[in-house]
Design a protein around this nucleic acid. Structure first.
Length: 364
DNA sequence: TACACGTGGGG
DNA sequence: TCCCCAAGTGT
């Protein structure tokens, strides 16, 4: 144990802490669909969905996803487009692609059994240190740390850790501390109890210290610093990106859509033709030029039908949406389609483009 | 290390 | 309206 951790755990009664935390968790835990059993596959899917995503948001996605892909084999054999469609609206779409890739790996290499050791499970795509620990502890009851934002917040307050939890380097401190205080008898309830406590009691703002089952163990509560902890530096503001979009119909009334590249932002999702605007020049002209280059066709741009912002973690699309007509034919490619309005719902769109689909409905 | 990578809810 | 998030991972 290094010096910093020794200092932090000085006079800390981890046995009593485990008992108080786990007793509370067993009595107060929420009924969540991924807690119905310990199927490693279901735990895995839930942990991926829960990354940076609220429980209430995940629940319906999890139910639908498990209905559609109930087993490792079912997900391994599914079409990627169907997986992305099931993920539509959940965000961070690489999670879905990495999950299916890793599930195929488990099907091929591990006879469809999720590995139960840190070495092998950590190799799987999309399974980082948190998710590895979560699956090992929850599905297999193995005492591995599962340090997420909740755990860092709770431990910051309990032990009085004044490190910036936004810095990647500080997660090591929390992992090491957790290795020393985790319950060897019930690591599943310990890890889930820490996260449940963070979600329900030890919240980021206005924590409910008077209801806290481990209040007696909490240094922050003792010194009244629970509102100051954890230390968390601020993120940069999203960068604005002006974009012109056009909803194009051909002579038969079919809409032109294209599949985004399989890497980067919104990978492999479908969208309406659009171009990032540069300074100077009419938006319509830039759009027509872009369409000519990308789709090799001429278009008539008729009206502006919407303008709105869509904010991502790191950037802000400033969208101007036009409606227009295709003159002639479109270059035929695998990632370009002409589809009826009814067929649009078969494709997975990012939310910004779902909003545009909704605009079409209103305009017809 | 720092940034890319989404979305909808809540104060 | 704005800002902060919410059970992180990949590069």
């Amino acid at each position: 144990m290094n010096e910093k951790v020794t200092e932090l755990l000085h006079l800390f009664d981890e046995k009593q802490f485990q008992y108080d935390l786990i007793s509370w968790y067993k009595n107060e835990q929420r009924n969540l669909p991924w807690r119905e059993n310990q199927d490693p596959y279901r735990i895995w899917v839930s942990e991926i969905m829960l990354q940076q995503t609220r429980v209430d948001t995940v629940i319906p996605y999890f139910e639908r996803f498990i209905s559609k892909f109930p087993t490792i084999e079912a997900l391994a054999n599914a079409e990627e487009s169907d997986v992305l469609k099931a993920w539509e609206g959940l965000g961070y779409y690489s999670r879905a692609r990495n999950l299916q890739s890793a599930v195929r790996e488990v099907a091929d290499t591990y006879n469809s059994v999720v590995p139960n050791n840190p070495k092998e499970i950590a190799k799987l795509k999309g399974v980082g240190p948190y998710t590895a620990g979560a699956i090992l502890s929850i599905a297999y009851n193995i005492p591995e740390p599962a340090v997420d934002g909740n755990v860092m917040r709770v431990l910051s307050r309990i032990l009085g850790i004044w490190e910036d939890i936004a810095k990647p380097s500080s997660r090591k401190t929390f992992e090491e501390v957790t290795r020393h205080i985790i319950s060897e008898e019930d690591p599943s309830s310990f890890n889930q109890g820490m996260m449940e406590l963070g979600a329900i009691i030890c919240t980021p703002k206005s924590p409910s210290c008077l209801l806290c089952p481990v209040q007696n163990h909490c240094r922050a509560f003792k010194e009244g610093s629970q509102e100051e902890l954890p230390i968390k530096s601020k993120k940069k503001a999203p960068r604005p990106v002006p974009i012109a979009v056009v909803v194009l119909k051909d002579l038969r009334g079919k809409y032109l859509i294209r599949k985004r590249p399989d890497k980067g932002l919104l990978a492999s999702l479908w969208e309406f033709p659009n171009v990032e605007l540069t300074e100077g020049g009419l938006k319509e002209d830039q759009l027509r030029k872009h369409i000519k280059e990308e789709y090799d066709c001429d278009v008539a741009i008729e009206n502006e039908i919407a303008a709105f912002d869509h904010v991502f973690s790191h950037l802000k699309w400033q969208l101007t949406v036009y409606i227009g007509t295709i003159q002639g034919t479109v270059k035929s490619e695998e990632n370009v389609r002409l589809v009826n309005k009814d067929e649009l719902e078969e494709f997975a769109f990012p939310v910004a483009h779902q909003k545009i689909v909704a605009t079409i409905e209103v305009n017809e």
